[in-house]
Amino acid sequence: MDPFVVLVLCLSCLLLLSIWRQSSGRGKLPPGPTPLPVIGNILQIDIKDVSKSLTNLSKIYGPVFTLYFGLERMVVLHGYEVVKEALIDLGEEFSGRGHFPLAERANRGFGIVFSNGKRWKEIRRFSLMTLRNFGMGKRSIEDRVQEEARCLVEELRKTKASPCDPTFILGCAPCNVICSIIFQKRFDYKDQQFLNLMEKLNENIRIVSTPWIQICNNFPTIIDYFPGTHNKLLKNLAFMESDILEKVKEHQESMDINNPRDFIDCFLIKMEKEKQNQQSEFTIENLVITAADLLGAGTETTSTTLRYALLLLLKHPEVTAKVQEEIERVIGRNRSPCMQDRGHMPYTDAVVHEVQRYIDLIPTSLPHAVTCDVKFRNYLIPKGTTILTSLTSVLHDNKEFPNPEMFDPRHFLDEGGNFKKSNYFMPFSAGKRICVGEGLARMELFLFLTFILQNFNLKSLIDPKDLDTTPVVNGFASVPPFYQLCFIPV
């Protein structure tokens, strides 16, 4: 058959498939802009700032609406009420993970971030239990974070109060905490193996944040037939998995079943207990991918939040002064901060919360999916439909947070200066898919920041009023603009 005829037939089939998918069930789905064949609503979305586009569309179609990214149908949730109703009140029905062709290629359905069903539930339950087990290797997770915080302070001392970009050092600290939990080992910041790991993690975040990856996920045929950065992403992930597998083999040879040292040991012990169960989800494949998931999810998000926190503290020296006064009063100079201190430091706690609220790190979270046909607000959402959640619409709700575009710790303080919780605080998402490392991340943010401010004054290279804190939105995360500062020993 003539190649031209084959091409026309293929394009015609794709067009018909697109029209059929977009028209099927439209009477039951939430409203939304009319999609174009094949490309859907992509032309109506700013790929570099999806969150802003969703906010604009919500003003037209309401808090629940339908979009098509290519052939992929998505239902968008915008605003606290619908997000709570879906992710919390109907948590089980909305607990699936959205379709990610690239991740599915890399992870093969294993791990904790992109798995679904029984596998996801069992691996998540085990990971939560293990991360909360403060007795691994007779050292609590808090001990590990405190140790890394001391190392971080010593690295900052080496800058000798000269101007520096904190990106690298602030990236090393949370990565080392995860390494300590998974591998029972922290690395020197100049260790070549550690630097290679950091390089792969950072490069992957840069790649994932590009519009090209959005295109690959919406048109998965590209993955096999086109060159691009997605190939580098898959190569980096394969490198990390190979490295983790080597460490798993080392653990198998040296493990003491009665004295687990780290996450890998705990997983291997669980595998041993379930070795007679042919349906067990505790396999080497799941261990390797879960460890890679924890490394990827637990490094860049925390380091970016820390980097943004220091920029905001530079911009608002009056806030920094209040935090340091609270540190001096509650902790002093002669001991290290600990998590028990947080309950006695409402202002510092409010500042950490406000940093996370203000920066809105992951504006749309990772997409969910419905696990069955769901009736939601008089609409029928078919099983498997991807759910896109606007966390921006919750964290920047102007009824809950007056002047949401302003950095103001009073958003989390009552009139008496006591810490005030808010149900709208969802930087880790909400419901059954809430970030498994939430507790660890909150511990790291509090301890790293208090250790830094206990030991250093922060000095800006320019007038604080002239510092730009506008986030650089890159399609996946909101990151701070480049800046330098000086760490002046107190």
Rank of each mutant, 00 (worst) to 15 (best):
E154Q: 13
Q146P: 02
F134C: 12
S429H: 02
Y80I: 08
E104Q: 09
R125M: 10
E328V: 10
L395G: 03
R157F: 13
C164M: 14
G439C: 11
T469D: 15
S140T: 13
V145K: 01
V64S: 03
K118Y: 13
L14G: 10
F134W: 12
E272W: 09
V248C: 08
V248A: 06
K28I: 15
E318F: 09
A173T: 04
S127A: 15
Q276V: 13
G40E: 01
L15T: 13
V153H: 00
R108I: 04
R335L: 00
Y61W: 15
V490P: 08
F263S: 00
T364P: 01
V330F: 08
L449P: 02
G298V: 03
A430Q: 09
Y483Q: 04
Q484L: 07
F134L: 13
P3N: 09
I331P: 03
I45D: 03
F219W: 12
R132S: 14
W20H: 08
S140D: 09
E400P: 04
I39E: 03
F100P: 05
I462S: 15
D224T: 10
K235L: 08
V177I: 09
D2H: 13
T385G: 01
A161N: 11
D188M: 09
P211V: 11
I223E: 05
E318W: 12
L295H: 01
L467V: 11
G27K: 13
D408Q: 06
V177D: 03
L485R: 02
P37S: 04
E154N: 14
T210K: 10
N196T: 14
K84P: 03
P317F: 05
N277S: 11
L445D: 02
I359F: 06
V473A: 14
I205A: 15
P31L: 06
V83Y: 04
K118V: 12
F183P: 01
E415L: 09
C13S: 14
D468M: 11
P30N: 02
I462V: 11
F219A: 06
L366H: 05
N133A: 08
E438C: 02
K84D: 04
G298Y: 03
Q192A: 14
H353D: 03
P3H: 06
L16W: 09
G117Y: 01
L237G: 07
